[in-house]
Amino acid sequence: MVTIVEKVRYYETDMMGIAHHSNHIRWFECARCEYLRTAGVDLIQLQKDGIIYPIKSVSGEYIHPVYFGDVLCITATLTHLTKAQMVFSYRILRQADGILLATGTSQNVFADAHTGKPIRLDAENFAKLQRLWKEESR
């Protein structure tokens, strides 16, 4: 599990003063990218090597409103990994009181950058992800 901290910006809110639901997906992505960085996977180099990682599916459950100025703790947990895909779960909590605000999941597949066809992740990056995932399982 990797946790990032984000402060809700004014432009992320709607006319009701609540963070627009689309931001949750972006916050999930920020946490997922930090998870990959922590594992040692360089996303820019992966793309240079011709491997992309498009989202196949994403979902979220909005439990409590998120307001301008809230400081959020967003966790990403790798829940499933193969050389063809990775699945993450997410939790967003308000730092001030620990209230669970939202949960979510996403599934990425690995694909050839030129053809878009599914491919298998190279052994080196797969091992990096596996290492962090196994460390978390202990």
Rank of each mutant, 00 (worst) to 15 (best):
Y67E: 05
S59C: 00
L81N: 15
R32W: 07
L78D: 03
K117F: 14
K134A: 14
F88H: 12
E29R: 05
R91W: 01
N125K: 04
W27Y: 15
G104F: 03
A111K: 07
K48H: 12
K56I: 15
F28I: 07
K83W: 07
K7F: 01
G116K: 11
G116I: 11
H114A: 14
L78G: 05
Y90W: 01
L129K: 09
A31Y: 05
Y11Q: 13
Y62K: 09
H114V: 12
V109S: 13
W133G: 00
M16E: 03
T75R: 06
L129H: 06
L93Y: 13
T103M: 09
D49T: 00
P65F: 12
I99Y: 11
N108D: 10
Q45M: 12
E136K: 13
I55Q: 02
H24C: 01
V8Q: 05
L101V: 10
T105L: 10
D14N: 14
Q107P: 03
R9D: 12
M16D: 07
E61W: 02
T105S: 13
E124S: 04
T3K: 11
C33E: 10
A123E: 14
L43E: 08
L129Q: 03
N125D: 13
E6W: 04
A127F: 02
A31R: 02
M15K: 11
M86R: 08
I4W: 05
T82S: 15
H24N: 07
T38L: 10
V2A: 01
V66A: 10
M1H: 05
G98S: 13
I119A: 04
T105G: 10
A96V: 12
V109H: 10
A123C: 01
D97S: 11
K128M: 02
V66G: 06
F110Y: 13
Q85I: 09
C30G: 00
T105V: 04
G69M: 06
H114G: 01
A127W: 00
R37I: 12
K128R: 10
R91I: 02
I63H: 14
G98L: 08
L36S: 03
K7C: 05
T103V: 14
F126I: 01
T13M: 09
A76K: 04
A19H: 05
T13C: 14
T77R: 14
G60A: 14
Y90L: 08
F28D: 00
K56D: 12
T79R: 10
T38D: 02
L72D: 11
T82W: 09
A19M: 15
